[in-house]
Design a protein around this nucleic acid. Sequence first.
RNA 1: GGUCCCUUCGUCUAGCGGUUAGGAUAUCUGGUUUUCAUCCAGAAGAUCACGGGUUCGAAUCCCGUAGGGACCGCCA
Length: 442
Amino acid sequence: MTVITRFAPSPTGLLHLGNIRTALINWLYARTHNGKFILRIDDTDQERSKDEYISKIKYDLEWLGIDYDDTFNQSSRFERYREQFEKLKADGRIYPCYETPEELERKRKLQMASGGKQVYDRTSLSLTDEEKRGYEDDGRKPHWRFLLQTERLKWNDLLKGELDIDLTSLSDPVLFREDGVPLYTFSSAVDDIDYNITNVIRGDDHTSNTAVQIEIINAIDKNRITFAHHALLKASSGDKLSKRDNVISIDSFRKSNLEPLAILSLLATIGTSQSIELKDSLNQIISEFKLETISTSPGRIEIDVLNALNKKQVQKLNFDDVSERLKNIDEKIDEKFWNTIRSNLETVEGVKQWSDIVFDSKLIEAEDKEYIKSAMELIPDDPWDENTWELWTTAIKEKTGRKGKELFLPLREAFTGMSHGPEMKLLIQLIGREKILERVKT
RNA sequence: GGUCCCUUCGUCUAGCGGUUAGGAUAUCUGGUUUUCAUCCAGAAGAUCACGGGUUCGAAUCCCGUAGGGACCGCCA
C-alpha cells in the first residue's frame, strides 16, 4: 500500500513555523516511504478564506522546496460532501438542530456556571416532527450534528502510543452549518477517505478531534488511517504560536533574507532527539528523518538558533549558488569578492554593506591621523597580491615601532570604516591601491 | 469545570530497574587567525518538578500533588 500523506492548511493566514513543521513532517514521511504528498486547501469557509493566502502558501512551499504530488481545494468538492451528507442522513447518523448560536452560547454559559459538562445536551435529538416543522415555519434552518455513539475510542497513535478518549466528554459535532456549508471535521474525513490518505500527522491540538473523526470515518466507510500527533511548538517566550504572529511567518523569514535550508534544518530537528545542526541538503534531511524521534512534549523555538544556522549556511554558499542574487545587489561583486566577504556575513544580502565599503569612494575620517599619514608614505606600488599586506605592515612596524592591535586596527578603520571584517590581506586587494589613497586623503 | 497529553543541563533532547545521567546547541577559557568570524582543544552547567510506595537498587515501575500544554465553536 502506497503511503499517502497530506498537508491541509486553511488559507486564512500566513504559514508559520508551526504549520510548516507539520507540512515538512508529512512531506518527509511520504518521501521516506516512497509515498505521495498531497496539498489540500481547506477553504470551505469562503468568508474567511482568501485567494491571496492560497498563493502565498503555495509560494512558501515552493520556496522551501517542499513539493507535492497533487493538490485540490475543498471548495471544489461541495457536491461530494453533500452526497456523503445524504448518506449519513439516510443512515440516521446525523440529526437536525435548531438552536441559534446565541442559544447555544447561553447553554454553554449555564453549564459552565453549574460546573457541569460543557457538552451539547442533544435537545434537538428528541424533537418531534411537529416541533421541527414549527421551527421551519418560523423560518429557521437546521444545522446538522453527528450522533456520537462510541463511549471510548481507542487508537494506536504513531507518536503518542495507545490513546483512549472519552467521547462522552465531547459534543456531537456539527457537520453542516445552517447555510449548508460542511465543516472541517466532516469535509476532512471525507477527503481523507476519498484520497486514500494512509497517514495523518498533525499537531496535538487535533488529538480529541481525531477521536470524533475516526467515528465519522467509520460511519462512512471504515477507518484505515494511521494517526500521529506531535507536540506543538511554542514561541521562545513560551507563548503559543499564532498565525497573526508575523515574526515567525515564512514570509517574514524570506523578507529578512533567511535561507530555506536553515529554516528546514531547524524544523527537521527541533523537538526531536536529533542534533540541531545545519544540513547539507534537502536530501540529507530526508535520509535522516525518523518520525519516532519527534517528541511528545512541547518545545520552544529559539530564534537565535535559526539565525546561527542561517549564518553557517551563508558561509557555505558558493558563488554559483548566489550569483543571481548578488547581481541584484551589486553587479561588481565577483567570485573573489564573494569568497573574501562571505565568512563575515549573517545573511547573503548583508554583502551590500561590504560592496559599499569596497566600491564606494567615500572619505573616511581617520582618528589617528599622524600614524595613518606615515603608513601611507609606505604604501606599496601596484600590482597588489597576497603578500602586499604583510610587506606593507612590516614596513610600518619598522618605521613606527607599533605592533599588534595598535598597528593594524587604525589601518582597518581608516580603510574600511569598520573595526572588524574579512582578512585585511584579502580586503585591501579588493579595495585597491587607488581607492585607498583617495579614501584616506588628509 | 471536563477530556487527553507533557515535565532530565539556559535551550532541544538520550535514557526503558544497576550509567561518573550521554549528546547537540548556547555560554566561558585557551590556541589558531596580527581583529572579528571560522577552526581546534578544554571547562562549567541537571538536588532527573515534588511527595510517597514497590525493590537489595528508581530518572526509569505504581500512586498522589504541583506546574505546563491541547481541546471542549454553525473555526481549522
